[in-house]
Design a protein around this nucleic acid. Sequence first.
DNA 1: ATAGGGTTAG
Length: 537
Amino acid sequence: MNRVSRHSSLTNPSHAWTRFKDLLFSGPLEKAFSEFESLRKAFPAKPPPIKLYNSLLKASLKQSRPDLVSSVYKDMILSRVPIETRTLNLLMASLCESGRLGDARRVFDSMSEKGCKPDGVSFRVLVSGYCREGLSFRGLELLNEMGRFGCSPDRKIYNAVVSGFCRENKVVQAERLVERMVKGGVFPDEVTFTVRISALCKAGKVLEAYRIFQNMKGDNGSGFPRPDVVTYSVMLDGFCRKGMLDEAEELVALMKSDGLSMDVGCYNIWLAGLVRNGKLLKARSVLVEMVEKDVKPDVYSYNIIVDGLCKEGMVLDARSVLDIMRDNGISPDVVTYSCLLHWYCKKGDIAEANKTLEEMMRDGCFPSISTCNVLLQSLWKEGRISEAELLLEKMNEKGYSLDKISCNIMIDGLCKSGKLNKAIEIVDGMWLHGSAALGGLGNAFLGLVDHTTNGKKCLPDLVMYSTLIDGLCKAGRLDEAKKKFAEMLARNIAPIQLFTTHLYIITVSRVNCHRLFVSSEIWKRRVAIQIQKHITF
DNA sequence: ATAGGGTTAG
């Protein structure tokens, strides 16, 4: 930095703000913010121009820092800069991202009294917010309002709602909306089709999805958009999760012959598919291919490999991947360390687990709720209740709240330690109060439960019922187990869950009830048939 | 700022 600009930025606020802008676009956000605060203190009467405020909001949003977004916004109000539509769009995006849809809607509704008019972006932000939260009907309602504000829906906003309906399995609504798009002269593109393919794959209907994919592939002049890298990726993921590795490999070849090159996201799907199906050697060769093709593996790629190696018990190899990562300029993150931690906890190697935890903190990675769950499970399962409570208290202090996985861990622990009735009581309570039902377990839980900002409850799921039913069967309480199974079906929980690392399956026969871990295709089919039989019992 | 894809924990 030269002397002149340094000197002028100390005395001239507009130079200072120009210099600050460079810092914001080049340096880390933390640094920019501390500079922002000191400049605001140095020139309290000279706030930055509105454009800079907007950039600051945008940067905070991009880094997923809603706390910074709201502090910038508060500062804007205090310094009385005129608020623009753009500012409020950014604020709404941030509120949607942190699940505060109600607040986002209030901002939207108050736009006119702030002297701003909602534009196309305002609608897109809020509509996609609704759809992402599983409230596609509300998204559609808002889309229908656009005309009154002189806006007309474009392809992106239609796709957002179509995607929402597909995710919610509301096929008819999705198709109706596509028809309406066409009538309005907005033609479906590869995204419109890809969301449908994605939804079908997630529902386990991979062949149905493939039919649509083939329609897109075929050059019969039917007006279908061509599949792009994402379409291929979604299809590839579908095949991999069904264990259809031959089809997956064919698809990879097809994609290349189609003139498309795999990007890092697509490679990661392929890597994860191979690792999940035990093809670690092949995964390694794919990693080599990535480097050859100059597609740089990212933190996801390495984490997939680290996790795969840990699951195969090759923890030394997993550790060595961390060095390879660092050599390639990728820092291990909280997921990388959590994978190692999971392995050590599973082996009961407390010393190595603690070492990993320390290393993780030293590396600047803070434990996530998943990390806590790994520790919680390990302590809880070994009956180290007081240590588990200590962990929960710490989590409480740091502002974590229990999620679905944590709840399942607790229920599992109760079942395994013979407190079956307590477990049943809590699961019943969860239908009414979500994870708050765990509050009855003691003080350590009270602060941790249902602090979710979006008010969504943690409801019992297949894994939780599997745990309960398994516990009841082992205790010889078969009639109650059957009752729970029926209750589960009545609650619309399917007894078979696709797309998890392991397949959780419950079979209830007259004499016994098993919860099985099944990973081979033949077994999946066989058990699926058994389940068909039981659904009617 | 804005539609579709990828990693960990039961």
